[in-house]
Design a protein around this nucleic acid. Sequence first.
DNA 1: CACAAACGTGTGTGCGCACACAAAGTTGCT
DNA 2: AGCAACTTTGTGTGCGCACACACGTTTGTG
Lengths: 352, 352
Amino acid sequence: MKQKNIRIKDIAAMAGVSEGTVDRVIHKRGKVSSDAADKVNKVLAEIEYTPNLLARTLGTARNYRLIAVIPHPESDPYWKQSFEGLEQGEAELAQFGITMSVERFFYDPTKKESFQQVTLKAFHSKPDGILVAPLFYYASVPFLKELSESKIPFIQFNTRIEQAKSLSFIGQDLFQSGRLAAELISLGNAGNGSYILLHVEEDLPNSIHLLEKEKGFKNYFETELAPQPNHIKSYTLPDSTHVLFEKELQSILRTPNLKGIYVTNSKAYLIATYLEKEKQQVRLIGYDLVEENINYLRKGMIQFIIHQNPKRQAKLGIRTLVNYLLFDKKPTALNLFPLEVITKTNLDSYQI
Amino acid sequence: MKQKNIRIKDIAAMAGVSEGTVDRVIHKRGKVSSDAADKVNKVLAEIEYTPNLLARTLGTARNYRLIAVIPHPESDPYWKQSFEGLEQGEAELAQFGITMSVERFFYDPTKKESFQQVTLKAFHSKPDGILVAPLFYYASVPFLKELSESKIPFIQFNTRIEQAKSLSFIGQDLFQSGRLAAELISLGNAGNGSYILLHVEEDLPNSIHLLEKEKGFKNYFETELAPQPNHIKSYTLPDSTHVLFEKELQSILRTPNLKGIYVTNSKAYLIATYLEKEKQQVRLIGYDLVEENINYLRKGMIQFIIHQNPKRQAKLGIRTLVNYLLFDKKPTALNLFPLEVITKTNLDSYQI
DNA sequence: CACAAACGTGTGTGCGCACACAAAGTTGCT
DNA sequence: AGCAACTTTGTGTGCGCACACACGTTTGTG
């Protein structure tokens, strides 16, 4: 005879008290004599009570309000994918009859002020939980601190502010990401060569995440390929519409013995366009499955894309917040996503 | 004012009938006058009714019995991971108070007879659903046909028998997998060279999945690297304890201008051991994150591992069957997993 | 035309839990 | 002792759905 799932009712019977008392003990609502509490706790210690999540949620499910703070989806295809992840996460909830609204607050990823403005608004609307991509370090610190102090649970994703006491961080280890890029760019290129690291269209001082990648990239060459005399240089390129963009890129491409270029964000396609025009053969590595990158990956102008899976990150963010709010499930503090390597050949297997 | 989630009760009110009638229409239980049915259908057409899965499951949830047919977990670390995936999937269910048992039927992956025996047993126990890894082609075809005929829903994973009418296939595109291996093995190796494809400890004629990989591997060289004069050869190696194993491997490793070896299963570490002993530098590519492979990946003796994520495959298999049985959700016929590329550097990001 | 069978429809119950509220028991104080 | 004020305990209700069952209506048959 199988031991069926144990219900509160069963526990009550075993302990010789009423269901209400068991409920009070489990939820620590007080108003229980130490005598009764002991009896219940004794039973709870023996058996392993796992509440039925279905029943729990069905009965309760008040209206939660979540806020997601991310860069504007139109600012970059990458953030568009995050946005879609939010939508998927929300749809998933609807299935379970959970009326949980996910409001989206967008900011301009190139403007710190825009981020500050939006986070202020988010904070004041007092949501039940927040999912935030804190791109700007100095603007994020006080905001996240405020959240902690007012006990609004929040999850960081994509970029991590370490000292913030978030429920969880969802994203990748960017230092390792840089190391991976270095490994892939140097693979099979025995002997000495020059490698370029490019930050394109970015406000570098404000972007810890890019600097992390740079550190990792250089670290790999130092630790793994030390005896080989490789030259690593990093550059920052302005907006591609800027007059200087082309000029500076041209001079970069004239680096002697240039073996590879590592673009630290999703803009590798800008470089690929150039290489194609000049018919120059250099190994090119970038980030994110955005359409332009995919095209150049297919053509063979980009060899590797490191995929961050923004969609899955956002979806998991929503799911994690829900689990916390509804089911009282504490997530792991660090949820590091795999560093996914995409090539021309396995690309299709990653398309949904 | 927000439109709350629409319930059966609401539909009943809108259509001017009772809840029971709506229920009968939705579930096509008959016993409804065409008059009443029309009214309900009209309402259903206007709104988008999404039943509350929580409530639905809570009320029903009879005891389902699933059977998983996989190679014995001790036969190979790979199958151990599948096994763990089954466990995780089952644990997930328990949370929701769903009493669904997942019985495991194991077979010896090197013995067709063992597979036949186990599948027969599985079939006769008349479960509500089956999850099967059909490694043996000829033994699988009649079994899967029987399942179809007796309307037992089943899901194939890992290996796919195309003509079988399974609910879904969960796994990878093995042809592409071979192509990917070819791309990675040839990367940066300009010019001509010799590449070896190795089937280790396998009963080749019975293993379509390995032949698919071989086809893909060769296809890549033909289509993508055609002008380069590369030599591709494939070999089959016996059990590593066999006297011939060492001898044959030695002769293979003496192939002139040998650039890379592609091992089509999880046994790449056997080759790595050898290369290490002989201090030979050859690019080595294999499958699966089993411990021995991981060690050699860390040492740099194996350059790439293609990861099949057996754990996630198995977990998803369970989940898919549950969704089908409990929620009446039809899965996609083909659920192709990404071909994940693991290197020394991104390995840690894949470890859980 | 009466009465049974077939059909159509509405109501009731339980799934397991959370939470509100009523009932019972205890204590303190005059 | 008597009563208020508090503490502890038990019972009831609803979440949305599936399904059983009872009631009401139509149709068929002798």
